[in-house]
Simulated scan of single mutants.
Amino acid sequence: MTLLSVSELRTAYDGVRAVDGVSLSLARGETVGLVGESGCGKSSLAKSILRLVEPQGGGIVFDGTDVRRLRGAGLRRFRRRAQMVFQDPYASLNPRHSVAALLETPLKVHGLGGRDERRARVARVLDRVGLPQAALPRYPHEFSGGQRQRIGIARALVLEPQLVVCDEPVSALDLSIQAQILNLLAAMRRELGLAYLFVSHDLSVVNHVADRVLVMYLGRIVESAPTEALWAAPRHPYTRALIEAVPDRARRRRAPPLAGDLPSPGGLPAGCRFHPRCPLASERCRREDPALRPLGPAHAVACHHAA
């Protein structure tokens, strides 16, 4: 059953189209990965869905509710059910608040429980993310990066949401700590039935956690497929290049590395946005912007040459 449905969402900053007509859906208990290079609009899309950034157009429907129409108490109720884990666990935690205050404040804001009930709930969520109760009186600077991210996850989970948007939640962490956090998120999904929108520039991470993958380039989705199918047979040349960039000595290179840099969203090329960097680019690509079209079951691609 669909939990989140986004249709033709558009978000711009000073006229620059960061999110340009994106549509996606997310089922209850599903993890959808959103991948692409830095600057392609992933974080803007994630924040727009939660209305941390206000979109200029399109629709967001969460569990049957039109999110873009919500104001005041209605918007606050939505945010209790849809939470976010940010990329930088230090920047997203108030350094003047203890862990106890960081975790109890959301409960106070939403009027959940009395003092004793709130403290019991905080103790339970801290245990869930693998931190000792002795952490409660301490402050963010007293923890490692991995521990701080656990606190950030605990803050998201303390309200018992249905959807958690993870914006590059492991990119600032060492590899060994990344694995711990990914395993924690997977355990929370199984235990609590959470749905995740998992944003990352690293396809190998998304391959580990996601049921489906959306590939984003310059504000648009260029490929969408179940994770296994995307990894085994990517149809868009941009997706192939992202997969080839993942270190794997056992895999023979099947596509050349990407040429050039990501163009500025303020100066988008005509036709297909990827054509200046694409090894398959033709005259049609320079003239016509390809639509996202189905290619087999649950697989869609925005490329004139995909078949």
Rank of each mutant, 00 (worst) to 15 (best):
L3F: 02
A18V: 07
L26Q: 01
V35C: 04
G36E: 07
S38N: 11
G39H: 09
C40H: 06
S43Y: 07
S44H: 06
K47E: 14
R51H: 04
L52T: 00
L52N: 00
E54C: 07
G57F: 08
G58T: 10
V61I: 12
G64A: 11
L70T: 10
R71E: 15
G74Q: 12
R76F: 13
F78R: 10
A82K: 06
Q83G: 07
Y90H: 10
S92M: 01
S92A: 05
L93P: 01
N94F: 00
R96A: 13
V99F: 03
A101M: 03
L102N: 03
E104H: 00
P106W: 00
V109G: 00
V109F: 01
H110V: 06
H110D: 06
G113T: 03
R115P: 01
R115V: 10
R115F: 05
D116W: 03
A120Y: 05
A123D: 12
V129P: 00
V129Q: 05
P132D: 08
Q133D: 13
Q133P: 02
R138C: 10
Y139S: 08
G146F: 05
G146M: 08
R150K: 04
I153N: 01
A154C: 04
R155W: 02
R155K: 04
A156S: 09
V158F: 01
E160M: 03
L175P: 05
S176Y: 03
Q178N: 07
A179Q: 05
I181T: 07
L182F: 04
N183C: 04
E191V: 04
L192K: 01
G193F: 08
A195F: 01
L197A: 05
L197V: 11
F198P: 00
S200C: 05
L203F: 09
L203I: 11
S204D: 12
L214W: 00
L218Q: 09
G219I: 11
S224M: 13
A225G: 06
W231D: 11
P234H: 06
R240M: 11
A241S: 08
D248Y: 09
R249L: 15
A255N: 14
A259R: 15
S264E: 14
R273M: 13
C278T: 07
E283C: 06
R284Y: 08
R284Q: 12
L295I: 14
G296K: 10
P297C: 13
C303P: 08
A307M: 14
